[in-house]
Design a protein around this nucleic acid. Structure first.
Lengths: 340, 340
DNA sequence: AAAATCTACGAAATCGGTTTCGTGTTAATA
DNA sequence: TATTAACACGAAACCGATTTCGTAGATTTT
């Protein structure tokens, strides 16, 4: 890179001290307007830009927010990033994005790198492997160091910090209830293994809606997908159970269910109603289009970053962890019968 | 944030100088093993982490790479990010991700922020508005400042720097040729306005394939989508032209075409063959699944970041801009007839 | 005319590290 | 025994800014 022009260069060229240059550039009243003009003109001419690193070191803040996501090629997470970025920019922050790739080890490493002073605070959605391990030491350490931390979507109670979550129980309930209210009787639940807590919560909502309608939960209607195996094969089995509804905890599972239905000659929504989760492109462009629980990722990201910046900038105040719950709405499309 | 432990703290506590602490922690031979052990033990106990800002300032490098994308909620770009991140991590770099949201103004601002020393180099895919304006001063300034820059996918010749692009002409040619070779006669091209050069290039490939087959390009079969208006409506018209093939320059246009076909009772692929671009989830989960030109975003990201780091780390060498062309492959699915 | 007050600027400390160079002590060599 | 070398460590400069404090000289006040 080209030799950057610094305050020192300007000072030397103009025969003044660095303090004078600094003050002149910040338009201090201590400097005569003559000198100011001269210095500012020179700085402009040579396109002087103050070195951010120096400022960060001096001010002990970076104006950067670290974000660790499990993955990015994913509609929900990329929407969240947009929200985080917009919220951060509005307050003069930039974001440093990293990925755990659902790996515990990478999450630990990334967290270590970010917590060495590169960022003022960190936003994380926990990796699946970590949730499975239940090893959260890297997070509790972070909290102990008092580095501002906000978790979103995939959170756990063990970590004491601000959180932004979807009302997963409510969402599962809403979806299931909608199906029941519209004449669907036998609803399959396509969900994640138990350690992924959002899946568990959505399942609770599903069960709650069933109980309210005096229907006993049938475990054979619940499919816990192992992502290491073929998704479609695993869903396939539940279609032998003569179901007339599917509630899938994400888009991919919903899309796979639709495909199976089509192959089996089932008409969606007449023979089978399908509701997915995450309002992504698949649901929108599938045919028929898929009714989903919209997760409002953008809002989540924005709320998360606002919470974080609040924590960063008002650290003197007494702190009690906040939890923001974002309710998700049913977005009706063609894969369900119209509301009766 | 909690008061961080610094080298100074350790020095004071142990009654040695900061130089000694620094050397001990870096395992210098200058320090006796006695002292080293004592210092290292203390540092470990109190979880000392060297402050990155201080190191960055001293070394005049940040080990951070800036990335500016037009958007993120988009399969291709999120795949590219993955590639960039992986390549960067492998070399000990982190990435700072920003978005232009296709806006010229935001692109200029973001570039300014990143070029103040926060990053060692920048990777950009140019915003649509900028391509339209044809105002690249913010980029040429960057090049003049000798800040390492790599452009990918959406690039222009006016900016002298390393580039990574898809062989768009070749891709357009391959797609069109495949259709022609398999009996499709009248192929509609659903593309972007002319200022988006990737669209233009793909169009050239389309035309090249037609010419080779002695078919005159029919302008009425080419639809330039204005993203501010309803996409489906715009595509609708070309369906009146009795077409039997569609080549769309992205997934969304392809999906919309499929939808129209379905509404008009056209069987895909028997009555109409469809080829899209970007191998995203829509193409994969659409029904029938959509044949696409796979863009290899991950590879592009990785190549781009490797080019950039090379530039950053070997800046002494004589520099001549490199251009890496990544060829894209046709991924055959159900929306086209099998190869004959 | 002496004292007080401004004005305009510079010296030096600071942020948290690294690194060069110098030096006192001890051990090895001539 | 005098000289040299090795060892172990500290002082100080440096990266690029900001900011406090001090002060010379001009101006105003008493």
């Amino acid at each position: 890179m080209k030799q950057k022009i610094t305050i020192k260069t300007i000072a030397k060229e103009l025969g003044v001290s660095t303090s004078t240059v600094s003050k002149a550039l910040r338009d201090s009243h201590e400097i005569s307007s003559d000198t100011k003009e001269k210095i500012q003109a020179y700085a402009n001419l040579y396109n002087y830009k103050p070195n951010h690193l120096a400022l960060q070191l001096r001010n002990q803040k970076t104006k950067v927010i670290g974000v660790i996501l499990p993955k990015i090629v994913h509609h929900f997470f990329s929407t969240v990033i947009m929200g985080i970025e917009e919220g951060a920019n509005k307050k003069g922050y930039n974001i440093m994005v990293c990925f755990s790739n659902e790996s515990y080890k990478k999450e630990v490493e990334t967290l270590k790198v970010l917590s060495n002073g590169s960022v003022d605070g960190i936003i994380v959605s926990i990796a699946n492997e970590t949730l499975k391990n239940k090893d959260f030491k890297h997070f509790t350490d972070l909290v102990a160091e008092e580095i501002p931390l906000v978790l979103f979507d995939r959170v756990v109670d063990e970590i004491l910090c601000d959180k932004v979550v979807v009302d997963d129980v409510g969402a599962g309930y809403k979806a299931t209830k909608y199906l029941l209210d519209n004449g669907v009787k036998k609803i399959a639940l396509i969900t994640t293994p138990n350690h992924v807590n959002v899946g568990t919560l959505r399942r609770q909502g599903y069960e709650k809606a069933l109980i309210e309608n005096y229907i006993k939960t049938d475990p054979s209607l619940i499919v816990e997908i192992d992502e290491n195996q073929d998704i479609k094969d695993q869903i396939e089995k539940v279609f032998d159970k003569d179901i007339d509804g599917v509630f899938a905890v994400n888009e991919i599972y919903a899309a796979n269910s639709m495909k199976i239905a089509k192959e089996r000659g089932l008409n969606v929504p007449n023979d089978l109603s399908v509701i997915g989760f995450t309002d992504g492109l698949i649901s929108e462009y599938s045919s028929p289009t898929i009714t989903t629980m919209a997760q409002h990722g953008f809002t989540m990201g924005k709320q998360a970053v606002e919470l974080l910046i609040d924590k960063i900038e008002k650290e003197s105040e007494v702190y009690r962890p906040k939890k923001i719950v974002i309710s998700s709405d049913l977005k009706l499309r063609e894969s369900t019968k119209p509301s009766s």
